[in-house]
């Protein structure tokens, strides 16, 4: 099965493809929502990964007065690192009596991967998925409580007018492993019909590479 074949172990002589922490969270997932469990949440965020088609939901219990997340649950359809990422994220959110919303808002995907002892490059996007689900859940909370000014939407901006490619598409390409303009062009054919877009695309590549792998 070539590429699709079991790449669960590294090819570089290291034993496991995943760190001990990833394994621990994967084999003993914390805080996921059991199917017969009643969890009273007041916010929910759901995201899907356009890259591989996986899905994640995070439910939050938020204390309004303290502006703090005090409990959470999750469900994930995806690979080992996606499951481990949501599991570790739920732990981070719950520990020390909960997480201030402002802290949650400033959480970076990198903090999730750091806690997991790193992820293979092509699995970084799975941890980003967790971060995005949390963001969505918080937006849900802001909407419900009328705090519209706190809602953060990753607005899409069209970069390549000819092919209608947005900054989000470029972000996804970076998460899928593209690093150079050639890689991105290969994946998206971006900037080929619209050469004027190239400088802007190069800026975005720098920005997202820095953001996720810097």
């Amino acid at each position: 099965m070539t590429d699709q074949e079991a790449t669960i172990r590294g090819n570089d002589g290291t034993n496991w493809f995943y760190s001990e922490e990833v394994k621990d969270h994967f084999f003993n997932p914390r805080n996921f929502l059991h199917h017969d469990e009643k969890f009273e949440s007041n916010a929910m965020g759901k995201v899907g990964s356009p890259a591989c088609g996986d899905e994640m939901i995070i439910w939050l219990k938020i204390n309004k007065d303290e502006d703090k997340i005090i409990d959470c649950r999750w469900q994930t359809f995806g690979c080992g690192s996606a499951i481990a990422s949501t599991s570790v994220l739920s732990e981070m959110v719950k520990e020390n009596g909960g997480m201030k919303i402002d802290t949650a808002l400033s959480l970076k995907p990198q903090e999730i991967t750091d806690r997991l002892g790193g992820l293979p490059i092509r699995k970084i996007h799975c941890s980003v998925l967790g971060d995005k689900a949390l963001q969505e859940a918080l937006n849900d909370w802001f909407r419900k409580t009328g705090q519209y000014d706190r809602i953060i939407t990753a607005g899409k901006k069209v970069i390549d007018k000819v092919l209608n490619i947005t900054d989000r598409d470029i972000e996804e390409a970076i998460l899928e492993g593209a690093r150079t303009l050639e890689d991105v062009q290969d994946k998206l054919k971006v900037g080929i019909g619209d050469p004027e877009a190239i400088p802007q695309i190069e800026d975005l590549i720098k920005f997202y590479t820095e953001k996720y792998y810097g």
Partner: peptide, 12 residues
């Protein structure tokens, strides 16, 4: 065993 899942391929 092995799988043909997108998550397990280099190209996703």
């Amino acid at each position: 065993c092995s799988t043909g899942s997108a998550c397990n391929s280099k190209s996703l």
